[in-house]
Design a protein around this nucleic acid. Sequence first.
DNA 1: GATGAATGAGCCTTCATTCAT
DNA 2: TATGAATGAAGGCTCATTCAT
Lengths: 204, 204, 204, 204
Amino acid sequence: MANQIAGVYEKIIECAKKEFLEKGFLNASLRTIAAAADTSTGSIYTRFGDKEGLFDAIVSPAIDGLKSMFLSIQDDFHSFPADVQKESMGKYTKSRIQDMIDFIYDNYDEFRLLLDASYGTEYQSFLDELVDIEVDYTYRYMKVTGCRSTESGEVSETFIHIIVTAYFNGFFEIVRHQMPKKEAERYVAMLSDYHMAGFSTVLY
Amino acid sequence: MANQIAGVYEKIIECAKKEFLEKGFLNASLRTIAAAADTSTGSIYTRFGDKEGLFDAIVSPAIDGLKSMFLSIQDDFHSFPADVQKESMGKYTKSRIQDMIDFIYDNYDEFRLLLDASYGTEYQSFLDELVDIEVDYTYRYMKVTGCRSTESGEVSETFIHIIVTAYFNGFFEIVRHQMPKKEAERYVAMLSDYHMAGFSTVLY
Amino acid sequence: MANQIAGVYEKIIECAKKEFLEKGFLNASLRTIAAAADTSTGSIYTRFGDKEGLFDAIVSPAIDGLKSMFLSIQDDFHSFPADVQKESMGKYTKSRIQDMIDFIYDNYDEFRLLLDASYGTEYQSFLDELVDIEVDYTYRYMKVTGCRSTESGEVSETFIHIIVTAYFNGFFEIVRHQMPKKEAERYVAMLSDYHMAGFSTVLY
Amino acid sequence: MANQIAGVYEKIIECAKKEFLEKGFLNASLRTIAAAADTSTGSIYTRFGDKEGLFDAIVSPAIDGLKSMFLSIQDDFHSFPADVQKESMGKYTKSRIQDMIDFIYDNYDEFRLLLDASYGTEYQSFLDELVDIEVDYTYRYMKVTGCRSTESGEVSETFIHIIVTAYFNGFFEIVRHQMPKKEAERYVAMLSDYHMAGFSTVLY
DNA sequence: GATGAATGAGCCTTCATTCAT
DNA sequence: TATGAATGAAGGCTCATTCAT
């Protein structure tokens, strides 16, 4: 059984990144990618199944990494006692967010792909998963801290969903705007304050 | 005089809406649209110039309507004396936002098109124009009300841009999530509070 | 019965000239012409039958004019006695050729159309008719002046045809090269000498 | 290894020749060609890139062959001493021209394509290259043999260009008129004499 | 006669995917 | 497993011409 030629996988990934970034998923051409990677279209299919599989391969490690990082951040936080959660929320969040920024800037192209070139893909709205996680934990947080806003019906689940989405959208502007990292860090800090304030208005 | 056959224009628009909504701009097929509308591809070209022209015809009245409504809201508000602006801001905004919601729900499909199916189109980021307007007026408001946050450099223009974008993105979730109108109204109200609070945190 | 609107015919002709010159017959668009002439495609069909008819209308007066001028030149010359023909040939030809040059420069665009933009048209090789006439008279001339080259078989009809074609092609380079008229006159003179010399080599 | 199916290339070429000859480049249809060759349009693109590439593939070997043959003829001749050039000119030319005729008749369809069906193609005026070469060498010849006509200004460059063009046009009438080869040979011989005579009239 | 919308075949080209080698 | 040619549907678009008004 012949093994796959070493290095081709990586080269395809590399060239595909470029092509997808340039033209978007829908307008990218597998032939162009194969040619740039000095290989055949067939070898893309062997490795990645199809066009979407290729996109997936590029992008899913970044997603998974971010997601699991995000999950562990949340888990850690929510394992604190309720009162600790309540008082450390702001501080804690801020400190851990830096890890996420680091991760994003270590995988910058992948996130640009996700945000700017994923139309036509299952990742079209990759934010949603992150949002869902955050929403989930927000609920737990509210329950634990005795926040009644949702139970009373004043605040619907959809609303929470939306503001969390807003938060993440805002967050990822650091990618969409291709901000230098230093700048990004300042913005995210302000954005957090901004949302924290909004949050307090709504949840109490 | 060779007039266009009555009703064909409307039928094309109607079928195009459906097709675009279903497949997105890029994947929509003019042939399919023409067939569904019982006419020829040529007749689409007669009426709309090209594929983008067709999309444009569907969507631009909605955009123009919303934009001009938005502009007049802003103009009205900013013609008040500074102190009136400052105290009436929240109330005023809320009352006029209802008009926008009404307008959006009167042109719901068009806005869904704009938000979910415009990839590949000049409207790819139709929000940006709205955002620009709002940002503009926000600056005027800050100047008039003596807010120093931007001048001091604490708050950069980019940041303002981003939070305004966040606000509009949040706002249009009522379309993306296809919320029933009643629900939408409540959400927007809360969203406004939410952002107003964030705003106060940042601008003072 | 409604008459055709005055001036439209001329305007169509004028705009069509421009379009044909620019794009060639095949790539020219009747719609473009109609639009430029502030009229409808239909009105082109009323006046000219079809695309080729339009080209024809522009170009055939120039052709007919040149042809009849050419014929009368030939007729005049060939009504001279044989000996007069023989000795005056060079001089006569030269003097009358000036008339043709004048005519061509008075209808310059039309001849450019004929030479550069007639592909796809029955005029693709408009020279041929002129050539045929000239060949005809050349034969008469040879018969009258007792030239035996063709009868002996040394010179075939096809050959004569070809060198006459060569002559006319050379002649019309004044159009293809868009030579200023003064320049054209000098060239044609030299070209005539050139061909006269070649002719004498072959016919005796 | 995915090789092209044997014989398809040739079959496409063959069918394309026919189609181009029949309808000219612009009006020829790739679909028709593909169908006639029992293959898909895509396979034309695989092999030839595009419509023009297909035309090119048919025609460029013939062009290149003729051009290089022509160049080597000229080079050989111009490597003779001036006096040899002057006296052997006629004889030499004639003998080598036979090679060109042979080559043309060995690639007859290709030259018909070039002359009658290349409108819309970069070969639209394939003669010009040949003419340029000839003009070039003509100048060298005049310099070497001490001909002063051009330096004195009596004969302009344009004029030389035109008569050389005339010569080549005359030459290729053997293709345009689809002359039998034997006939062609006789004609070309006479044409050469004819032009040689004209040439002497003008250049001395 | 004038209009110009309608027609619909036809154009070249591109593409993801398949599959014989 | 690698290759890359083959497929052939589908794409947007243009056009000369027709014909109802």
